[in-house]
Design a protein around this nucleic acid. Structure first.
Lengths: 192, 192
DNA sequence: TACACTGATGTCAGCGACTGCCATCGCACT
DNA sequence: AGTGCGATGGCAGTCGCTGACATCAGTGTA
């Protein structure tokens, strides 16, 4: 049935695009939700039906990433050491970002310029970490080790991603993950 | 000179105490800045002269901690491996928390109950991490290693602190730091 | 003594984020 | 025709936060 809906479709996507464009153009703080909604052809009230707040519009993809990583972790044989299992899970996600390189770069430039957005990003990463820790526990890793490995894995993710963005998305993200994991093993292996 | 000031002294501390008490009693969201100010015998406007926002009142000690850790790191001989240098710096700070055990516990219970506060805590930890990384670079550690070690160190701090709070402050925080660093070396040392 | 100066505070108006409540109105189903 | 559903709009109100200006005790100075 070809039916002409009462409203334009993809309201959510339109809001994300409108928000990102305005954030890039005028900055996050200088952009009001009314402006975003207007640009998407909607009312302010509707924005808040799709996103809990003005920041969330840039982070709605995080749940997807979390599910992806948890699922990837589940498929790694239990015989693989926790840290390597997390490394493999992260590598699985590299494609996703490389496929949306331009979006990722624009988005990250906005986040880098605003502290509130950095806060939101950090809590999303923390949520990722706790999901990974849960996944590790399900594989038999003990509590403390799971927390440590998950947090270290997220640290690697953050640092590698940062460098990938800094390269303009030209570096190979999966290789950066590997490089960081390798370096992590080196720097935690020395000493006492 | 004994002079009777026009206003009660320690406005800042009064605001912190009033805020913490109200956050504990009614929760963070349910508490308005007007209430905090009133309880401290001040006006709302004055609150915002001392703290940039409603959350910051629980995090004003963070700069102090950052300075302490950076200074502690500076005093560790360059011959000590980066990860161990960070471990020593963290151990230096254990006393501080144990001396304010009750305050730390009340504060943490409020933070645990509110997402916005967790965001603020995470960005303070990230700031700590970047300060440590800078300190490591000053000791000759290269960029990537410094970032990794600093982030790993902060992860340890977070995890150990979490467990210390969970113990009601009865565990020895410095020992928890050591235990986490030791475990970190184990879990990153296995595998490929 | 008089007077200007400072610094911590108060008052007030106003913006923007966010919420609750109710209205609208195509569409589907009966 | 009637009834309910779902996505949206409109509106009023609260609260976080800011800028501009007023207040006034104490300090220094002519």
């Amino acid at each position: 049935m070809f039916m002409v809906s009462r409203w334009e479709p993809n309201a959510r996507e339109r809001l994300v695009e409108a928000a990102l464009a305005l954030y890039v153009e005028h900055g996050f703080e200088q952009t009001t939700v009314v402006e975003i909604a207007k640009r998407a052809g909607l009312a302010e009230r509707t924005f808040f039906r799709y996103f809990t707040d003005k920041r969330e519009v840039l982070f709605s993809g995080a749940e997807l990433l979390e599910e992806l990583l948890v699922e990837a972790l589940r498929t790694v044989p239990d015989s693989v050491a926790p840290i390597d299992a997390v490394a493999r899970a992260l590598n699985t996600s590299a494609r996703i970002f490389e496929e949306r390189r331009d979006f990722a770069i624009r988005r990250q430039s906005v986040i880098a310029a605003n502290r509130e957005l950095q806060e939101r990003e950090l809590i999303k990463l923390a949520s990722l970490s706790s999901a990974l820790a849960k996944g590790l526990r399900a594989r038999g890793t003990d509590e403390l080790a799971a927390d440590l490995v998950a947090n270290a894995g997220i640290a690697v993710f953050k640092i590698a991603f940062e460098r990938w963005i800094a390269s303009g998305g030209t570096d190979d993200l999966a290789h950066l993950f590997d490089k960081c994991f390798a370096e992590l093993k080196v720097v935690t292996g020395e000493g006492d």
